[in-house]
Design a protein around this nucleic acid. Structure first.
Lengths: 197, 197
DNA sequence: GTCTATAGGGAGATAGAC
DNA sequence: GTCTATCTCCCTATAGAC
C-alpha cells in the first residue's frame, strides 16, 4: 500500500520491543505482523530471513550506543558519566510489564542459538561497552574521582557484569533489587577514607 | 520397553544440558528424544507438557543448591566458601562448546516466556542464592575476613549479579573475561590496608 | 505403565499478485 | 517495490498400541 511509508522502520521498532521482552527465540514474524497490521510474509520482504532482522537489531543497538557515547562526552567527570551508563539500563528496567533486559544480556543468554553474523555483532557491542567503561574508569582514577584496586580493565569488567546481571535478576525478584545492587556497587567505588579499613 | 529403567532421569539430564546451552525456547522434545533414542511423544509421557519439564528442571536446581549449601557448611571461613560459590559457576563456564550459563541467568533472560510455575521456582532459586550470599557476607564481615561498605544484603546483590553477568558475557568474548571479572571482584573485597585510600 | 503413530497448529520462508 | 496466498517443516500435544 502507498500509505505505508516506513514499514521497515516500524518492523524494527516492534521487533526490538518483542526481542528485549521475550528473547530472540520468543517471538515470531507473525507477532510482528499482527502488531503492525500486515501479513507475516510482508516482514520477510523487508528482512528475508529472521537472522537478517536479528543482525539489524544488534547493529542498530551498536549505532545507538556509539551516538550515545558521543553525546556523553559533554558530561563532565566520572560520576555523571557513570550515572548516565546506569540510566540507559534503568530505562530497560522501567519499561512496562516486568521490564525488558539489555541487548547484551539477551544476546549472551541465547548466544548458541543465533547466527554467526548476530554473534559477531553481539561480540562487538559487548566489547564496545567494555572499552567505554574501561576508558571511563581510567580517566576517573587519574582525576581522583573514583577508587578501586587493580587495573581499569578489571573494574570495568566488574561494573559491566554487575549492571547486566542486576537488570536480569530484577526480572525475577523485582526492580528494588536493581537499585539495591547499583547503590552498593557505587558505594564500593566511592573515594575511601582511611578509616574504613 | 522393560530395559529402560530410568528414562525420566535421563530426560532430565539431557534437557538440562540443552536448556543451559540453548535456553528454554531453544530446544524441543525432539532434540531430547533423538539424544536418548526414543520418540518425542515418549517424553510427553514422563513430562506431559513442556512446562512440567521446565519446573522439574528448576526444582532440581533448587534441591541441588540446597544440598550444596549443606556440604559447604563444612568449609571454614569466608574465602573458601566464596570460592566454592565461584567454582560452581566456573563449572558452567568450562563446559564444552562455548559454555553453558547458570540456571538463574537463563531463567531471568526468558522470564516472560515461561509459565507462572516456572517463574515461581525461578524466583525462589534466585532468592535462595541471594540469602546464602547475604549470610556469607555478614559472617565474613563479623569475622573480619572481608571488607565492604554498606550492608551484607547489598554487597551480596552486587556479588551475585557480577558472577551471573560475568558468566554470560564470557559467552560472547571468551572465558578470559570471566576470570578477569572474578579476580577483580575479589580484589575489591579483600581486607584493605589504610594505604589504598 | 511405557512408548509409538499421528493430529493440529504455528514457525520460517517462497513464489507470485498488485 | 510492496505485500499476500501458500508451502513445508517442525513444534507441542493427544489418542491409542503394546
Amino acid at each position: 500500500m502507498a500509505g505505508r511509508t516506513d514499514t521497515k522502520h516500524e518492523i524494527l521498532n516492534v521487533a526490538e520491543q518483542l526481542w528485549l521482552h521475550k528473547g530472540y527465540n520468543g517471538f515470531s514474524y507473525q507477532h510482528i505482523a499482527k502488531a503492525i497490521g500486515i501479513k507475516s510474509a510482508a516482514v520477510h520482504y523487508h528482512y528475508p530471513a529472521k537472522q537478517d532482522l536479528g543482525v539489524a537489531l544488534v547493529e542498530r543497538m551498536r549505532r545507538r550506543f556509539a551516538r550515545w557515547t558521543e553525546r556523553t562526552e559533554a558530561l563532565d567527570g566520572f560520576w555523571p558519566k557513570f550515572d548516565a551508563y546506569i540510566a540507559i539500563h534503568q530505562l530497560y528496567l522501567d519499561d512496562g510489564e516486568g521490564g525488558r533486559v539489555c541487548p547484551s544480556g539477551i544476546l549472551d543468554a541465547e548466544f548458541h542459538t543465533i547466527s554467526e553474523d548476530m554473534r559477531h555483532a553481539a561480540r562487538e557491542l559487548t566489547r564496545e561497552m567494555h572499552r567505554w567503561l574501561t576508558d571511563l574508569f581510567r580517566a576517573g582514577r587519574d582525576a581522583g574521582e573514583v577508587s578501586f584496586r587493580g587495573d581499569p580493565d578489571g573494574i570495568a569488567a566488574v561494573a559491566g557484569a554487575t549492571v547486566q546481571g542486576a537488570l536480569q535478576i530484577a526480572r525475577a525478584v523485582g526492580r528494588g533489587s536493581f537499585h539495591l545492587t547499583i547503590d552498593h556497587l557505587k558505594l564500593q567505588l566511592r573515594q575511601r577514607e582511611c578509616a574504613d579499613a
